[in-house]
Structure formats: C-alpha cells, structure tokens
Computed example of a mutant assay.
Amino acid sequence: MAPSSTKRVRNTKLTRHFLIGNTAHILPHPSFPSSPPDGHTKGWTVYVRPLPNGPDITTWLKKVQFKLHHTYADASRTIEAPGPFEVTETGYGEFGVEIRLYFAPEAGEKAVYREHYLVLAPWGESKDQMERTNEVKAERLETVEFNEPTVEFFKQMTSEDQFNWLKVKKGRGKGKKPEFVFEGEVEPSTQLPEKGDGGKGGGLGSGGAWNRGFERQVVGQLREVEKVLDQSLEVERRGMEERRRKMEELGVAVAAK
C-alpha cells in the first residue's frame, strides 16, 4: 500500500481561484518613503491574493517568486507563507513581472508560472476615479487546478480551517469562551460568489468583488468581440479573394499581349 503522502484521490479535481494584480500611486504618498530614488515618480505593489471571501491561500500556496525588471537591485524576490505575497517598490516605468507559484509540499505538484504587466497609469472606465483617489488598480482572476490530489493535500483543501482567516472574535459574556464567526454579506466559499458585495471586496466586478455575474459579463463581452473579429476576418477574406481574382485577370491580360 502506498504511503498517504503519495496516494491519490482518484477522479477528483480541486479548483482554487485567486487574484494577481497591482496597485500604484503618484509620489509623494504616505505609503512610501518621503525621499524615493531620483526619477522614481510612482509607488506600487504587485501581489498574489485570495478572493475576499475565499479560503486561506496558504492552504495550497507556500511561496511566490516575483521577478522584477533587471534594473532593480535583487530583482528576484521570494515571499514565503504566511505572506502577504506581495512586493512593494518605487519606479517610473511599466514592465512585465514574472511570477512563480510554489505549492504546498503535500500537493506533490511542480511550481507554475504566471505573469502580470505592471500598470502605473489610470485606465479604463474607472480612469477618472483612479485619478481623483490617486490609486491605480489592475488585477485579474486566476485559477489553479489539482487533478487527483494526494490524500493528505485533499484533507487540507477540504478542511473548515481554511476559512479561519475570515472569522472575527466575538465575546459571549463574562466567564464564557469567545466564539469566532463570519461577518459580511458574502458567504465564505471556495467558489466565486453569485453576486458582488456592494464594493466592499475591493475587486473588479459589478458590485465590488469578483463574482459569477461579473464572470458571465466578461464572457459575454468576449463573445461579442469574437463576433466582430469573425466579421472583420470574413471581410478581409473576401477582399483577398477579390484581389486575387483581379491579379489573375491582370496576368491573363498581360500574357495575352
């Protein structure tokens, strides 16, 4: 019989959602040193975070390596659990940050790569708000899947303890032990919530946090874009056929002379 550390739970898949992104501010800003290096006009933080109502990310993530632009001293930064998994710096230019995610040893899985393009300038529909508040935010939803996890890892990933970080301590009166309860409008879950939380989660979706409604909205937008691209490709295809026909006619006419 194989030891529990290598035994697998057959026909089972575990999925975890998380966020990769960055925030940025024009300097000076109270969150950053009053005397940044010459030419550094922005302060920023790049991060890997759990969903606002999701399980503890350290249940499966034990280390994150951020590879910054080569001009930074110690460009490769490694952050270990319990985190937070983030790097804060100052600078002036945008660049791609390579991110390597290292899983818990119990997972028995190799590290995986992601990349985030550091955004420092206000953008999109929230551009005016970002300018007013001096806070740029750019993040996206990411997913990892563990197919046929080890028995030990499966126990960790299905334990109620992974939601302890969302609980708050509540007094129960003199002489009684305090209890830890959940607060907030969005129930803790390993899945995306159906609706947002009214903006309290801090994510990018309609209503604040990432949710299924926003996910469907994004999918719908992508499908509309796909239709437009298909139409453009069809127009281009017809144009190519017309140009080819004209060239063939021209070739025939030249050959006839």
Results as ranks from 00 to 15, higher is better:
A2F: 13
S4E: 13
K7S: 14
K7A: 15
K7T: 13
V9H: 06
N11R: 15
K13M: 15
T15R: 15
G21A: 07
T23S: 08
A24Y: 04
I26T: 13
L27R: 03
H29I: 03
S35G: 01
P37K: 11
W44S: 04
L51D: 09
N53M: 13
P55K: 08
D56M: 07
L61M: 13
K62C: 11
K63I: 02
K63E: 15
V64L: 03
V64N: 03
K67C: 04
K67Q: 11
Y72I: 02
D74S: 10
A75G: 00
T78P: 02
A81C: 02
T88Y: 05
Y92S: 15
G93Q: 14
F95E: 06
G96Q: 11
E98Y: 02
Y102C: 06
A104D: 13
P105S: 09
A107L: 01
A107R: 01
E109D: 05
K110R: 12
K110N: 13
K110C: 08
A111S: 15
V119F: 02
A121R: 08
A121P: 00
D128W: 02
Q129H: 09
R132F: 08
T133W: 10
E139L: 15
L141F: 10
L141Y: 09
E142H: 12
V144K: 03
N147C: 09
T150M: 08
F153L: 11
F154D: 10
S159P: 10
S159W: 11
F163D: 07
K167S: 08
V168A: 09
K169V: 12
G171Y: 09
R172G: 05
G184D: 07
V186G: 05
E187F: 08
P188N: 06
G199M: 05
G199T: 05
G201V: 03
G203T: 02
L204T: 00
G205P: 00
G205W: 01
S206P: 00
G207E: 03
G207A: 06
G208H: 04
A209K: 02
W210M: 14
R212K: 14
R212Q: 14
R212G: 00
R212S: 03
G213E: 14
E215A: 10
R216Y: 04
Q217M: 08
V218G: 01
V219M: 07
E224G: 01
V225N: 03
L229A: 03
D230L: 05
L233H: 05
E234K: 11
V235G: 01
V235F: 12
R238D: 14
M240S: 04
M240R: 14
E241Y: 07
R244C: 11
R245T: 10
M247P: 00
V252L: 15
V254A: 15
A255V: 07
A256E: 11
A256L: 09
K257C: 08
